[in-house]
């Protein structure tokens, strides 16, 4: 006689990847819709995670939905693999999925990041998941999401342009720093998450798929491969990335990449590469190890086509 227990899978305290199957299905549906309408914010239930809201729970839900046992996972916070929260998220994904982890961008198949895109160029076999604190690029001009939703539907972006123009008039330059609003696929204005302006052009016509997820605000959006992502700029005032001229990484001697600035007692600063995985490889190569370093988006501070 067949017992009931023969018909079901053995009981587990948590599902594979922590999230239950219905939660994963809801995230997948949201992601498919987000990919179909590049840059458009798709609402989703956003489950509570065993981590505080605002600490990467949105990115985590996407990563846990897509991770597989054979995935290779890299997690960075502000570019660093050893940031305390990156370490925490990485160990949770590894624990919930059994996937291997890495600090090498080239090796990773799934990269969850808070506010940086790696310097080495991502390829078609890689997924980038960006954590998003505030998905609404129009928040600064209209705090109510119900109103912003209607403005997106109407492509009513006049207030956003006005905001940038006012910055220009009042301060002599566009003062938007990170989270630079960008037009995706010629239709939706998107917040690329608080990545520096340096990273924004990396999304344009990228080979990889980028998924953006705001857990607290319950919104998903995506930049599919080979999609236009254009930072808002006036025809006579060009978009500018952060200036890295003259900055040399103290540990690796690298130049022309995004640097962390560290103040010194004498009033000057020292610099180090913000992309810690990249810096690690450069340092190892310097020490004589054979290390594969991929092509970078920027060479000597110049964006490569």
């Amino acid at each position: 006689m067949t017992a009931l227990r023969d018909l079901v899978r053995p009981w587990q305290r948590y599902s594979y990847g922590f999230l239950d199957e219905s939660a994963k299905r809801a995230v997948r549906r949201g992601l498919l819709k987000a990919i179909a309408i590049p840059g458009c914010q798709i609402s989703y239930a956003s489950r509570e995670m065993p981590m505080a809201r605002g600490w990467g729970t949105g990115g985590l839900q996407v990563s846990l939905t897509l991770v597989e046992p054979e995935s290779v996972v890299k997690v960075i916070d502000q570019g660093a693999d050893d940031g305390v929260n990156a370490a925490n998220i990485r160990s949770f994904i590894a624990r919930a999925s059994g996937a291997r982890t890495t600090t090498d961008t080239l090796e990773a198949t799934l990269i969850q990041s808070r506010h940086r895109i790696p310097e080495e160029r991502l390829t078609r076999n890689q997924l980038l998941v960006l954590q998003v604190p505030d998905p609404e690029p129009l928040r600064a001009v209209v705090p109510d999401i119900s109103v912003a939703r209607i403005m997106h539907a109407d492509a009513d972006y006049g207030l956003m342009w006005l905001k940038l123009y006012e910055q220009l008039v009042q301060a002599g330059r566009v003062t938007q720093s990170s989270s630079y609003p960008s037009l995706v696929n010629g239709r939706h204005i998107m917040s690329p998450s608080p990545i520096p302006r340096w990273d924004t052009p990396k999304l344009h016509q990228a080979e990889n798929l980028t998924l953006l997820s705001a857990g607290r605000e319950k919104r998903l959006y995506a930049v599919p491969p080979w999609t236009d992502v254009k930072p808002l700029e006036f025809s006579d005032v060009a978009f500018k990335v952060e200036d890295q001229t003259g900055r040399v990484c103290e540990r690796t001697g690298a130049t022309g990449q995004f640097m962390n600035e560290m103040p010194l007692l004498d009033g000057t600063s020292t610099f180090e590469l913000s992309d810690a995985g990249f810096a690690e490889k450069l340092a190892r190569r310097r020490a004589g190890e054979a290390v594969t370093i991929g092509p970078t988006y920027y060479v000597d501070g110049e964006l490569q086509p």
Binding site: A52, R53, Q78
Partner: peptide, 23 residues
Amino acid sequence: ESAGFCLHFKLPHYVTFQSALDV
């Protein structure tokens, strides 16, 4: 959501701050 977001300001924000300094 409110408590989590308030507490998240303890996380490092040096990249965004660097970007702001540049401006």
